[in-house]
Design a protein around this nucleic acid. Structure first.
Length: 351
DNA sequence: GCGTCCAGGTCTACC
DNA sequence: GGTAGACCTGGACGC
């Protein structure tokens, strides 16, 4: 597999410390293999500025849809699960930052119906942030004493989201109350044991396990196979809740008022305030005991004396300063910590 | 070698 | 409604 995936912080789209560094995710022969032989292609013209590389392969190592995806020569091969179907996708950049064009080829097991095909086109374009207009954010950011430093470094980086709520929520749950190394080990086991291998376009990529699959696994088995401890219960309950079929889709969550979307996400087992801010396709301000140190230093110029106790204060300050742009501000800052450290003369620790 | 602490939160019983 | 404690596990640390 490739990848330095999981670099430092893991939030949207599975990131942080390289899973690859802890345990490679490979297409093992024991895994179920799905050949995705039907394909179609379309072109997306994202709103400029759009930097394909920064958007698809974030500087902090966040992956787009999953940790085992492959990036080579301005092209990304990745896999996700939409409505229970495995979907392989190849994104290729054909344009420039000011005149962006992205060629998207979608691989499926079966030929899609016309409506399904149109939905996939819409969803995948949204997922890579094609309809996101950065101009308003930039006009606010250039007057902000922190953000003015990052928008230059990351000019044209769009926010992206995974079309799959289950994988995002599982990621959030596995990050809870565990050192990064343990989280990445649990994730790697989870994908290795229960993930399906997608075979398309000459690539073999392991996908996140689906809620359908995990709803049929016992808590005891999941604890045993992936050493997840109490988190196994949340993941099985989460899978069953999503399989009940009455939970909003990613598109529906994206169209809701952000507060309402978060409210719905908080209904999910194992998803609290922090996890909902990670899982929401609209983002939040996900302050935890790691990021509280970074933002505490940025806001108050000093490291919190007690990270856990400082979370509420730092989160409140971020939301007060940046309001509806809090997620974009968080997103840009954590992708640019090295440069920001140098420019502000503050040591911002990478996890 | 052994005991204790705590880590990228969430849930719940209890007041 | 607010909050203290429990929850798996394993690495770091002190002794």
């Amino acid at each position: 597999m490739e990848k330095e995936k999981y670099v430092s912080i893991i939030y949207r789209g599975q990131p942080h410390q390289s899973l690859a560094q802890s345990r490679p995710i490979t297409a093992s022969s024991a895994s179920a293999m799905a050949k995705l032989t039907r394909s179609f292609e379309f072109e997306v013209k994202p709103l400029p500025p759009y930097d394909f590389r920064l958007t698809i392969k974030k500087p902090a190592g966040w992956s787009l849809f999953g940790p085992a995806e492959i990036y080579e020569d301005e092209t990304l091969w990745t896999v996700t699960n939409i409505d229970g179907a495995l979907v392989g996708v190849k994104f290729s950049s054909k344009g420039t930052i000011e005149n962006p064009r992205v060629l998207v080829r979608v691989f499926l097991k079966k030929k899609p119906a016309r409506a399904e095909k149109e939905r996939l086109k819409r969803l995948l374009a949204q997922a890579i942030g094609a309809d996101q207009d950065l101009r308003q954010f930039y006009s606010v950011a250039k007057r902000d004493k922190i953000l003015k430093h990052v928008i230059g470094d990351l000019y044209g980086m769009h926010d992206t989201f995974s079309p799959n709520i289950f994988s995002e929520a599982v990621l959030a749950i596995l990050l809870q109350m565990a050192p990064l190394k343990r989280s990445t080990t649990m994730m790697a086991s989870f994908i290795d044991v229960y993930g399906e291998v997608a075979n398309f376009d000459g690539k073999r990529i392991k996908a996140w396990p689906t809620s359908r699959r995990m709803a049929g696994v016992s808590i005891g088995e999941l604890k045993r196979t992936c050493n997840m401890g109490y988190r196994a219960k949340s993941i099985v309950k989460l899978a069953k809740r999503l399989e009940a079929g009455d939970f909003p889709t990613v598109e529906q969550l994206k169209d809701m008022d952000p507060a309402r979307a978060k409210e719905r996400l908080l209904e999910l087992p194992g998803v609290g305030d922090y996890s909902a801010d990670i899982v929401s396709p609209q983002g939040g301000f996900p302050i935890d005991v790691w990021s509280v140190e970074v933002f505490g230093k940025l806001f108050f110029r000093k490291k919190p004396t007690n990270n856990r106790l400082a979370i509420e204060r730092v989160k409140k300050e971020g939301l007060k300063r940046w309001g509806k742009w809090a997620w974009m501000a968080f997103f840009y800052v954590v992708q640019d910590l090295g440069n920001l450290s140098r420019k502000l003369g503050i040591k911002l620790r990478l996890a």
